[in-house]
């Protein structure tokens, strides 16, 4: 593949994706969405419209009830490292409360000192603590470090910076954007903050326009 074709490649693709829990009401209905490598896609929409559900499907944590989600034209790998990695809305729910942070941060790969420093992670002090001994913003930095493994090709950030103060938000996003640009990663940003979406994204999709369930 040439460089420009690679740049324009469709990474994730939803084909007529519908989802519901058991026999419950449809949460997502007939969603069609292509996300290319070169774009930074913002997904907006009111709460309860299925933004987080769609991101869980895209990252392979749930399977669509109908339709298909394709990663580079094929199904997401079921084994090994998943190239699509997710940063959650609630870091305190994403980290194992019984693991010290050193174990959590090095579960998938070993982040280097330089990255930890850029994320302002105080490894000396924080590695030996449990998640309930750090603030939400401090925990979220660990979640960002966790997903930046060398095999990651796509990052889904689900409201990742709402728990952060403005300076930390700018700092973490600037690190993440640097990595995304440097490594040519795909990025999906879910946010309620319109000015943040405009700052970060190259394309914005409102879930209300593509979700047939509402």
């Amino acid at each position: 593949m040439t460089d420009s074709a690679k740049h324009d490649e469709i990474l994730l693709s939803c084909q007529n994706v519908s989802f519901r829990y058991h026999k419950g009401p449809w949460i997502l209905r007939n969603i069609n969405l292509d996300i290319r490598r070169h774009e930074r896609l913002g997904l907006i929409g009111p709460s309860g419209y299925g933004k987080s559900t769609l991101s869980r499907l895209l990252a392979g944590y749930d399977s669509p009830t109908e339709g298909e989600i394709l990663w580079k034209g094929k199904k997401l790998p079921q084994k090994g490292f998943c190239p699509v990695q997710m940063i959650y809305q609630h870091p305190e729910k994403a980290l194992d409360p019984r693991w010290k942070l050193k174990r959590s941060v090095s579960e998938g790969w070993q982040p280097d000192e330089e990255l930890l420093k850029r994320l302002n992670i105080n490894s000396k002090l924080w590695f030996s603590r449990y998640p309930n001994e750090l603030s939400g913003g401090e925990l979220q930095r660990f979640c960002v470090a966790r997903v930046l493994a060398p095999d990651t090709e796509f990052i889904i950030a689900d409201e990742m910076s709402t728990m952060l103060d403005a300076i930390t938000q700018a700092q973490i996003w600037n690190v993440l954007l640097d990595e995304v640009k440097k490594r040519d990663l795909g990025l999906l940003v879910i946010t309620h903050n319109n000015s943040l979406a405009e700052k970060l994204c190259t394309r914005i999709v409102d879930l209300r326009d593509i979700n047939g369930a509402f």
Binding site: A166, I167, Q169, A170, W173, N174, S195, K199
Partner: peptide, 17 residues
């Protein structure tokens, strides 16, 4: 001041606190 400048609508500047 830095907090103000770090807002996405005001420049999104990350400063070293």
């Amino acid at each position: 001041k830095a907090l103000w400048s770090a807002l996405p609508e005001n420049g999104f500047l990350s400063a070293d606190a």
